[in-house]
Write a protein that binds this DNA or RNA. Structure first.
Length: 274
DNA sequence: CGGACAACCTGGCGGC
DNA sequence: TGCCGCCAGGTTGTCC
């Protein structure tokens, strides 16, 4: 569930809580949560480093330390929160890793499904090197998007989910962007007119920006660092609305599978041909 | 290049 | 109440 808007919301919540804090130690209770290096190396290397900045690249949370980058991917059910070291939270039931901060607080990573990953690396490009552009970046314009679309034959839905094509879009905001653009998820990328491509560029950005404005979508697992829910899900046009009337035309929203993902769309607003 | 699918995992839910 | 099986979806890797 955490896509660009959810990760951005987490980053904005964490930033004032951990920036400037020095890490005293690390504990990990599910080995595979640590992608690299191994726990012993990780703990020794992270200790004593100060968190200089908290940022986002695609769906990765990137904390710049003195000599390394501490990177977290929430995958589907990961949650990050800061708490007093002796405090108990509901999400601790699935606690996988914690960082001891010199303030006496802990930065905790909880993850029921154990898909989330934590990395410590001095070279960020080993993680983010193959990612496509940030869709909300100032220097990413309609012409850049249209150039990337050119010659691609894949279904639009599959292409939007491809992190190497454009970074940060996941299943929810792909469906929302395609609805807003009036484009069927099975349209081939190279079948778009210039107008359609430019429209899609703008609706991707609008869907993501609205998601951030509503602080992400708490369908089930996602929570902000303070434990509260985002409200993006209350504003969806199609995602999770199969069988319900389209907010624009009243036609029932359909749910199909595209690229092995549940895909929601309105047959009237997103015609398959032309 | 692109598509299909398994793997990684668990909780929540519908059906019986 | 309880058990069963399915579904959720980000990413990687494999195979065709």
């Amino acid at each position: 569930m955490p896509e660009l808007p959810e990760v951005e919301t987490v980053v904005r919540g964490l930033r004032p809580l951990v920036t400037g804090q020095t890490i005293a130690g690390m504990g990990c209770t599910w080995a595979r949560t640590l992608h690299s290096p191994d726990a012993t190396t990780f703990a020794a290397r992270v200790a004593g480093q100060t968190i200089q900045a908290v940022n986002r690249r695609a769906k990765y949370i990137v904390m710049a330390l003195d000599h390394d980058f501490l990177v977290v991917h929430l995958k589907m059910t990961g949650r990050l929160y800061v708490t007093a070291a002796d405090a108990i939270h509901d999400a601790d039931r699935w606690l996988r890793l914690h960082l001891d901060l010199d303030s006496g607080q802990q930065l905790r990573f909880s993850d029921p499904r154990k898909f989330g990953r934590v990395y410590l690396t001095s070279d960020l490009t080993t993680i983010t090197g193959a990612l496509g552009p940030e869709p909300l970046a100032d220097d990413f314009g309609p012409a850049d998007f249209m150039a990337r679309l050119a010659g691609r034959k894949r279904h639009l839905k599959a292409l939007l989910l491809d992190q190497g094509f454009i970074a940060g879009v996941g299943n929810i905001y792909a469906d929302e962007a395609l609805f807003r653009a009036g484009l069927h998820p099975l349209r081939r990328a190279d079948s778009l007119t210039a107008d359609e491509a430019e429209r899609l560029y703008h609706t991707i950005r609008a869907a993501l920006a609205d998601g951030i404005a509503h602080e992400g979508a708490s369908i089930n697992w996602y929570r902000k660092p303070d434990g509260t829910r985002g409200e993006s899900q209350d504003h969806f046009f199609v995602y999770g609305r199969g069988g319900q009337p389209c907010r624009r035309c009243g036609h029932p929203i359909e749910k199909i599978r595209v690229a092995q993902r549940g895909t929601h769309f309105c047959r009237a607003c997103q015609p398959e041909h032309l």
